[in-house]
């Protein structure tokens, strides 16, 4: 409940500049995709978006250090971050839903199952299978092979699960005012995140060079890359966030009780970890 000290900032340049930067980035992206040769626009847009975010967060951190925020403000941030993560869950749910639909319905139907078996007239030789190595139409060439889940994907799973544990240790250390311990475990978490990104990069290289798993390789490549790709982007963002948290810990930010920025980063990282577990099971293993 409100105690009468809720901080309402008077004005800010970052929202309007952030909107324009977002628009710039999107126009650049569109121009690049449709007309080609707009890389510079995208670059400027991305830099502008990142800069606005940095200045905006700097304002929030300064206001927090000035003691302008009360416990009610803390709850606003908690609700805000919680619902933001829920929106991310639903974003990934769309891609998982697509994967399940394709595997449960679309491919069996293409193979002639059920009342919708008419597609067998178009592609009589199509065999329903998953992973789908031979898409129905001859113009689409499927992957040559798929990854064994028990090699790089397993290593990545262990890396991410471990990173969630190390991050929790860092968080507990911060709560116990053991800042050096916190710093070291947080640095370890960042390293684990970087290792994950590197291994995922190696896997993408392997996918294109030796496995024939590409974006154009039919529905297997499509679902594989959209799920692992967006997850990978989230790991990169999460690692960057943790790096910022590491820098703030080194600078002496956060206290044992007031560190929601740190805690929100932990929430985000654990969310990214859970998404990976879903990916590991449904994209690689099953």
């Amino acid at each position: 409940m409100s105690g009468g000290s809720y901080y309402v900032p008077a004005k800010s340049y970052w929202p309007i500049l952030g909107s324009l930067a977002t628009g710039f980035m999107m126009v650049g992206l569109g121009a690049q995709l449709v007309y080609g040769s707009a890389n510079v626009l995208i670059l400027i847009g991305v830099i502008a978006v990142v800069a606005v975010m940095a200045f905006w967060f700097r304002d929030v951190i300064n206001e927090s250090h000035q003691g302008l925020y009360d416990s009610q403000m803390d709850r606003s941030f908690r609700w805000g971050m919680g619902w933001f993560i829920f929106s991310e869950v639903m974003f990934f749910a769309a891609f998982f839903g697509a994967l399940f639909y394709v595997r449960m319905f679309a491919i069996p139907w293409l193979g002639g199952e059920g009342a919708k078996g008419v597609s067998a007239l178009l592609w009589p030789n199509f065999i329903a299978e998953w992973p789908l190595l031979s898409p129905p139409d001859a113009s689409v060439s499927g992957p040559d092979n798929v990854f064994s889940p028990w090699q790089l994907p397993l290593v990545n799973t262990l890396l991410l699960v471990t990173s969630s544990i190390t991050l929790t240790i860092a968080h507990e250390a911060l709560k116990a005012e053991k800042r050096r311990v916190c710093r070291n475990w947080l640095a370890g978490t960042v390293i684990l995140g970087c290792c994950f990104i590197f291994i995922q990069g190696v896997e993408y290289y392997e996918a294109y060079q030796h496995y024939g798993i590409t974006l154009e390789a039919g529905i297997f490549g499509s679902t594989f890359f959209i799920l692992t790709g967006f997850h990978g982007v989230h790991v990169i963002i999460g690692t960057l966030i943790l790096m910022v948290m590491l820098a703030r810990i080194i600078r002496g930010h956060f206290s044992d009780t007031g560190h929601f920025g740190f805690e929100a980063s932990c929430w985000y990282w654990h969310f990214v970890d859970v998404v990976w577990l879903g990916l590991f099971i449904f994209v690689y293993v099953v």
Partner: peptide, 17 residues
């Protein structure tokens, strides 16, 4: 833009998806 097959039955996807 990237040649995926989410909504293309020829690649194993489905417009109904």
């Amino acid at each position: 833009n990237f040649g995926t097959s989410f909504f293309d039955a020829g690649g194993g996807g489905d417009p109904v998806l």
